[in-house]
Amino acid sequence: MIPYKIPEEKETLLFYAKLLGDRKSEAIIVRNSIENKQEAVHFAEFFWGMVRESNKQDEISGESSEYIFEKLIITLMGYFRSSGYEEEWEEVLNRN
């Protein structure tokens, strides 16, 4: 289970999965877990795509998503590590 610290983390992930039309990430979020290496790579790529999109959204709205994204990166890095997908997270991180 992805260990969210606050409910807004999951809500933010779902918001961006829907905004970006990413049904695979949406399913991972709803299920609350990654089941294999392919999903791990996909979800890590989704996260970094979400960061890029949030920067665009922040420019449009004049608001800042920095707080929630700091929470999310800590949660997801810990989850990837504890679930055995740290290598996949690092691989995607190095490409972004």
Rank of each mutant, 00 (worst) to 15 (best):
S25T: 14
E26D: 01
I28A: 06
I28L: 02
I28W: 14
I29W: 04
I29Q: 08
V30H: 04
V30K: 14
R31L: 09
R31P: 14
N32Y: 02
N32C: 02
N32F: 01
S33K: 15
S33H: 04
I34Y: 05
I34E: 05
E35V: 11
E35W: 06
N36I: 00
K37A: 15
K37N: 14
Q38G: 06
E39T: 01
E39F: 06
A40T: 00
A40Y: 01
V41G: 00
V41H: 00
F43R: 07
A44Y: 06
E45Q: 13
E45C: 01
E45N: 14
F46P: 09
F46N: 01
F46Y: 08
F47D: 11
F47K: 12
F47I: 05
W48I: 11
M50Q: 01
M50I: 15
M50H: 08
M50Y: 12
V51R: 10
V51F: 09
V51Q: 02
R52C: 15
E53N: 07
S54I: 02
S54M: 13
S54G: 12
S54F: 06
N55F: 11
N55P: 00
N55E: 12
N55K: 03
K56E: 09
Q57V: 05
Q57S: 05
Q57R: 07
Q57K: 13
Q57T: 06
D58K: 06
D58T: 02
E59Y: 13
I60A: 03
I60P: 00
I60F: 02
I60W: 05
E63Y: 13
E63N: 08
S65C: 13
E66W: 05
I68F: 09
F69I: 01
F69S: 01
E70L: 06
E70W: 03
K71N: 14
L72D: 11
L72Y: 10
L72T: 10
T75K: 04
L76C: 14
L76F: 08
M77C: 15
M77H: 10
G78K: 11
Y79T: 09
Y79N: 15
Y79I: 03
